[in-house]
Simulated assay, not measured.
Amino acid sequence: MKKLELRLLRGLPGSGKSTLAKTLNLVHIEADQFFENDKGEYCFDAKLLSSAHQWCQSQCEYNLSHNRSVVVANTFIKLWEMDAYRKIAQQYNAELIIDTCRGQFKSVHNVPESVIKRMRKDWEA
């Protein structure tokens, strides 16, 4: 049986995380999906960010528990933001792979440049 994989793609908005995730043959999950309505429109609400990340983690765990490998594409600016996924990978004996995307594309979610600048300053390598 093939070993389960949990791949985390981290990077600033517009770095190519979602684009790369879509090319992998893995279940693709990201917190931004939580903000998409039934029509596929992106409706971000900062007050729901914590819920979005909880949803993302639960979707990841659900898929791994059903023997499906997963790719999670989130910014993961701070290293501790990956801790929950490290525990989930360990729980399901999944190989954890962490990749950093460094592309310079336009943010598909129209994140303001001031926010990206702050994220760049706060980035933990």
Rank of each mutant, 00 (worst) to 15 (best):
86 R>K: 15
33 Q>H: 12
79 L>F: 09
26 L>Y: 02
70 V>S: 04
88 I>N: 05
57 Q>D: 11
84 A>F: 09
19 T>G: 00
93 N>G: 06
102 R>K: 14
9 L>C: 09
114 S>Q: 11
125 A>N: 15
32 D>G: 06
72 V>A: 03
98 I>H: 02
77 I>H: 09
73 A>R: 04
63 N>W: 07
64 L>W: 05
73 A>V: 08
98 I>E: 07
33 Q>F: 07
100 T>C: 07
67 N>Q: 15
72 V>L: 01
37 N>F: 01
19 T>P: 04
32 D>F: 03
72 V>T: 01
104 Q>T: 15
10 R>W: 06
21 A>H: 03
112 P>F: 00
76 F>H: 09
39 K>W: 10
1 M>R: 11
69 S>C: 02
68 R>P: 03
102 R>T: 15
37 N>R: 00
3 K>L: 11
55 W>D: 02
118 R>G: 08
91 Q>A: 07
43 C>L: 15
4 L>E: 01
79 L>A: 15
75 T>W: 07
9 L>F: 00
47 K>V: 09
91 Q>T: 10
114 S>N: 10
80 W>I: 12
70 V>A: 06
70 V>K: 01
42 Y>A: 04
57 Q>T: 05
122 D>W: 08
59 Q>Y: 05
48 L>Q: 15
63 N>S: 07
32 D>C: 10
125 A>H: 13
6 L>A: 01
1 M>C: 10
93 N>R: 08
3 K>N: 12
121 K>H: 14
1 M>D: 10
55 W>E: 03
35 F>H: 08
12 L>V: 13
112 P>C: 00
72 V>H: 06
39 K>H: 14
109 H>E: 10
39 K>T: 13
69 S>M: 05
31 A>E: 04
49 L>D: 09
84 A>V: 11
72 V>E: 02
47 K>Q: 12
38 D>H: 14
2 K>E: 13
99 D>S: 10
10 R>K: 15
27 V>N: 02
40 G>A: 05
4 L>R: 03
44 F>C: 08
107 S>T: 06
96 L>H: 07
4 L>C: 08
18 S>C: 08
93 N>Y: 02
18 S>N: 13
66 H>L: 11
110 N>A: 13
14 G>Y: 12
105 F>H: 15
85 Y>S: 05
67 N>Y: 08
91 Q>R: 11
75 T>C: 15
44 F>P: 06
125 A>Y: 11
39 K>R: 15
61 E>W: 02
15 S>C: 07
48 L>R: 13
74 N>E: 13
31 A>H: 05
58 S>F: 09
43 C>G: 02
95 E>D: 14
90 Q>Y: 00
31 A>D: 12
116 I>F: 06
50 S>L: 13
124 E>Y: 10
21 A>C: 06
96 L>A: 01
52 A>Q: 06
107 S>D: 13
45 D>C: 09
58 S>W: 05
7 R>L: 11
